[in-house]
């Protein structure tokens, strides 16, 4: 058929890849999976995605299983600074190229032997968000002397959230802001998140900025809207 003939010309024909992620019950990974499938379709290769529901031990098992399948390459979410050092080395020794995606070792190439990292630097992401927000605020003439930054996180203790808030703190330092608090957003369920953050903003009227630390669009959007509304009224 025509499409067959056309498919012959695809650059990655016959290759097989695996995405080993910590993801699970949140829509972020649905988007990533769709993207991976679209890309595979376009390039003519095959890809499978592994989800681990934020269970590090399970994710390590998934990587071991992926390595055993001998794919042409593995993309791994490196969401821990030590846990992935040996597994990645072993995979590379077995001749399987491993790259980092989405999260990287906080020390970058010095911390993990992955071939490269594709994705944003969490620290830099936090820094850039902060920089942009504070810059805009400065232009609007907001007083920074008593400014307070609230940072609700969706998954308390998650590596990426901690690193990202370090970036935000770096930006804060540049603008001379000293007061900030990381708060437990209450998970992924929106009503809980909204309830928590609304209460927090009412209790802390000194809050000048709120930077919600989440990658999940359905949470960040409504919460963002309600927060903006709250902030405007305060």
């Amino acid at each position: 058929m025509g499409s067959m003939a056309f498919a012959q010309g695809k650059p990655a024909e016959g290759l097989y890849f695996r995405l080993v992620t910590h993801g699970g019950d949140d829509p972020f990974w649905a988007v990533v999976q769709q993207g991976a499938l679209d890309a595979a379709n376009e390039l003519g290769c095959k890809v499978d995605i592994d989800l681990a529901g934020s269970d590090l031990a399970l994710q390590q098992k998934r990587l071991a299983e992926a390595v055993a399948q001998k794919p042409n390459g593995i993309a791994l979410v490196i969401n821990d600074d030590t846990a992935w050092d040996k597994p990645v080395e072993d995979a590379l020794a077995a001749g399987i190229p491993v790259i980092g995606i989405n999260n990287d070792d906080s020390k970058g190439p010095a911390g993990n032997k992955r071939l490269c990292y594709i994705g944003k630097s969490e620290e830099r992401a936090g820094y850039m968000i902060g920089l942009k927000l504070f810059q805009t605020a400065k232009e609007k003439g907001i007083d920074f002397s008593k400014a307070h930054v609230a940072m609700p996180v969706e998954v308390p203790g998650a590596n990426y959230g901690v690193i990202r808030s370090n970036g935000i703190k770096r930006a804060m330092a540049e603008f001379g802001i000293t007061s900030s608090e990381i708060i437990d957003g209450g998970g992924l369920e929106m009503t809980t998140v909204e309830q928590r953050e609304t209460s927090y903003l009412l209790a802390h009227p000194e809050t000048t900025f709120s930077i919600t630390n989440t990658d999940s669009p359905p949470i960040s959007i409504p919460v963002g809207i309600s927060l903006t509304a709250q902030l405007r009224s305060i």
């Binding site: 019950d25 992924l188 929106m190 359905p218 409504p222």
Partner: peptide
């Protein structure tokens, strides 16, 4: 919320 989200109702 103005939307459906798969994480509604968790917990």
């Amino acid at each position: 919320l103005g939307s459906f989200a798969a994480t509604q109702g968790v917990g």
